[in-house]
Write a protein that binds this DNA or RNA. Structure first.
Lengths: 240, 240
DNA sequence: CAGTGGTCTAGACCACTAC
DNA sequence: TAGTGGTCTAGACCACTGT
């Protein structure tokens, strides 16, 4: 059933095996899966290994445990939000839209004080500022300004912007992306932005500012996005 | 150092011990904490127990691990978002504001189709609709409409609305709250809402709709909130 | 090379649930 | 009382990092 000599850890194989059986409807929603001791025998592994699999599946929301009763299949999420840190491109593709974008600005500059503080920059340290209009299915969706410390990505150029910025950053080992803080607010569109977004005035816009951090806690980018409110909704999941 | 006979699990005690030493600055940001084997000796427990503690602290973002190198202290979050599922009251208190509210509607009704579908109700099943104006520091902050299936909370009344709705629900065992899906969008305020919120027209508002689920996946409430955009920003944390 | 975190074993006792 | 998940032990081998 499992490949003991695969480079894929046993607990990952068990996770995939269980996921598959759940997807195929072998265990319906709310039904108990086999107990940890039964799985231990079925797979010929120790109980701790089975528990690691189940813990991961429970953390991801597929299963839930009840003391003294068993482990059960949770109801699938009706709306699946984009989990984790995603780019505009990934976001649009997940929504079934075709993303494209126009670069309207790329410069090296000394940022304003609030940007410098959020990126924990010293005085005089420079950032790259990338300004893009983001399109979905050929229609304007958002204006996006990205600030990146020059010292973290000194080799950044226009060509790199076509690919994934995140994989460009993570090519450099020791730089792995950890988490991000996101601030969301509503506002009225400005005259200038209404032209870029091709909307009337007055209109509401959704402003999303994201500060992304490496695993060591160092901030490495600020993304300031202005979305058309009539075309964009933000979905997220909240856990207890 | 640890109490082997405490009802508090050893791994929790170890977590608290490490948290304390980090807070006291014994391990500074980016510094390595003792290796798992060192901790095993220090605490007189097995390595798996130590690992459970460190895994939890790493999941909560306090530590991060690097293969072959060690475990390190992550930088503290600059802005701390309200984590988990919180009520308006908790949210405002966390922001240093004083919450209050006015009940403007409480009725039992058959909901519209979209609400019934989201709550997975059958035809003719009723909901409670609670409409409240939420204030922060005596000024209007949001309009909140909450839909609750009558079959889940048959005894709900106006008095219960003064306390915490969540603890009212969880009093009933077998009903534990699991996760929620949240949808956020911006819009222009309507004439009616501009009166409730005491804002001019045109103004932008932030609409947040939350569907909360029990651990078994059953939806148990929909909260539709309309926030003043000039007074409210939504913070969230995103993990990879 | 020695040290680190990642994976895994084969047991054990506990508190809790259901019958 | 039997079965469940929660906690814990005392080892083991692996791949990876830094010197």
């Amino acid at each position: 059933m499992l490949d003991k000599h695969s480079p894929v850890p046993m607990y990952v194989q068990i996770e995939e095996h269980l996921k598959l059986r759940i997807q195929q409807g072998e265990f319906s929603i709310g039904a108990a899966i086999p107990s940890e001791r039964e799985l231990t025998e079925m797979f010929g592994v120790s109980r701790m290994t089975v528990r690691q699999s189940i813990t991961n599946l429970a953390n991801s929301g597929l299963l839930y445990r009840e003391k003294g009763r068993g482990t059960f299949v949770a109801a699938p999420k009706v709306e699946q939000p984009l989990s984790g840190l995603t780019s505009f491109t990934e976001d649009m593709l997940a929504r079934g839209l075709t993303p494209s974008n126009v670069l309207v600005g790329f410069e090296k500059m000394i940022p304003e004080l609030d940007i410098a503080q959020k990126l924990k920059l010293g005085e005089g340290e420079e950032v790259f500022l990338v300004k893009r209009i983001r399109y979905a299915d050929e229609k304007p969706m958002a204006i996006e300004k990205t600030y990146l410390p020059v010292k973290l990505v000194p080799k950044l150029n226009k060509d790199a912007l076509n690919g994934s910025l995140y994989s460009f950053i993570e090519k450099d080992k020791q730089m792995t992306i950890g988490h991000a803080m996101q601030r969301m607010e509503a506002a009225l569109v400005t005259k200038e932005d209404s032209n870029f977004l091709q909307i009337n005035m007055p209109s509401a816009i959704l402003i999303i500012e994201r500060i992304s951090y490496l695993t060591n806690g160092l901030p490495f980018e600020i993304v300031h996005s202005t979305y058309r409110a009539d075309r964009y909704q933000f979905l997220s999941e909240i856990r207890r």
